[in-house]
Deep mutational scan, measured.
Amino acid sequence: KTVKFDGLQFDFDNPEKALKFALEVAKQKGAEVHIHGDEIKIE
Score class of each variant (00 low, 15 high):
3 V>Q: 03
40 I>N: 00
4 K>E: 04
30 G>K: 06
26 A>I: 03
31 A>W: 15
8 L>N: 05
11 D>K: 13
11 D>N: 12
9 Q>M: 09
20 K>D: 08
18 A>F: 04
34 H>T: 11
8 L>Y: 09
28 Q>D: 08
10 F>S: 00
4 K>D: 02
8 L>W: 09
22 A>M: 04
27 K>C: 15
40 I>A: 03
5 F>C: 15
14 N>C: 15
36 H>D: 12
4 K>I: 13
5 F>R: 01
43 E>I: 14
43 E>S: 11
34 H>Q: 08
32 E>R: 13
31 A>L: 14
33 V>E: 01
39 E>A: 06
13 D>I: 08
30 G>I: 04
38 D>Y: 10
40 I>M: 04
33 V>S: 02
1 K>F: 15
8 L>H: 06
36 H>V: 13
4 K>P: 02
35 I>L: 08
21 F>H: 03
3 V>C: 06
26 A>M: 04
19 L>E: 02
24 E>F: 11
42 I>W: 03
15 P>L: 14
3 V>L: 04
14 N>V: 05
22 A>H: 02
15 P>D: 10
39 E>Y: 12
38 D>P: 06
24 E>V: 06
36 H>Y: 14
15 P>H: 11
16 E>I: 11
43 E>D: 09
32 E>P: 05
11 D>S: 13
42 I>L: 07
10 F>I: 07
21 F>Y: 08
39 E>N: 05
39 E>S: 07
7 G>C: 14
5 F>H: 02
14 N>E: 09
13 D>G: 04
29 K>Y: 14
2 T>M: 06
43 E>R: 12
32 E>I: 14
17 K>A: 14
3 V>M: 04
5 F>E: 01
37 G>M: 07
24 E>D: 07
13 D>H: 05
43 E>W: 13
30 G>Q: 07
27 K>H: 09
11 D>I: 14
29 K>N: 11
10 F>E: 00
38 D>G: 10
7 G>M: 06
34 H>P: 01
15 P>V: 12
26 A>Y: 05
14 N>G: 05
40 I>F: 07
5 F>W: 08
27 K>Q: 10
23 L>E: 07
36 H>S: 11
8 L>V: 07
36 H>F: 12
6 D>A: 10
37 G>P: 06
10 F>V: 05
2 T>F: 08
38 D>A: 08
25 V>A: 06
10 F>A: 01
34 H>D: 04
16 E>C: 15
3 V>P: 01
27 K>Y: 10
6 D>S: 07
14 N>W: 02
3 V>W: 04
35 I>V: 10
38 D>E: 07
19 L>D: 01
1 K>R: 12
31 A>F: 12
38 D>N: 12
17 K>M: 14
37 G>Y: 06
8 L>K: 11
29 K>G: 05
20 K>A: 13
14 N>I: 05
22 A>G: 01
13 D>T: 08
23 L>Y: 12
33 V>W: 08
28 Q>P: 01
41 K>P: 00
29 K>I: 14
12 F>G: 02
19 L>F: 09
19 L>I: 07
6 D>E: 09
6 D>M: 13
28 Q>V: 09
34 H>S: 10
11 D>H: 15
40 I>D: 02
4 K>M: 12
38 D>S: 10
6 D>Q: 09
34 H>L: 11
20 K>Y: 08
22 A>K: 02
33 V>C: 14
8 L>A: 05
21 F>P: 02
22 A>E: 02
32 E>L: 13
2 T>I: 12
23 L>G: 00
42 I>K: 02
17 K>S: 13
39 E>M: 11
16 E>L: 10
6 D>G: 10
7 G>Q: 04
18 A>E: 01
37 G>N: 07
5 F>L: 05
4 K>T: 13
6 D>H: 09
6 D>L: 11
41 K>D: 06
26 A>P: 00
2 T>V: 12
3 V>K: 01
19 L>T: 01
26 A>N: 01
37 G>W: 08
34 H>Y: 13
23 L>R: 08
6 D>R: 11
30 G>L: 06
23 L>T: 06
29 K>S: 11
2 T>W: 09
8 L>R: 10
41 K>F: 15
25 V>E: 04
8 L>F: 10
12 F>P: 00
25 V>P: 01
17 K>D: 15
37 G>E: 07
12 F>E: 03
31 A>D: 04
8 L>Q: 09
27 K>A: 13
27 K>T: 08
35 I>P: 02
37 G>R: 06
29 K>C: 15
43 E>A: 10
2 T>P: 03
24 E>T: 07
34 H>R: 11
13 D>Q: 07
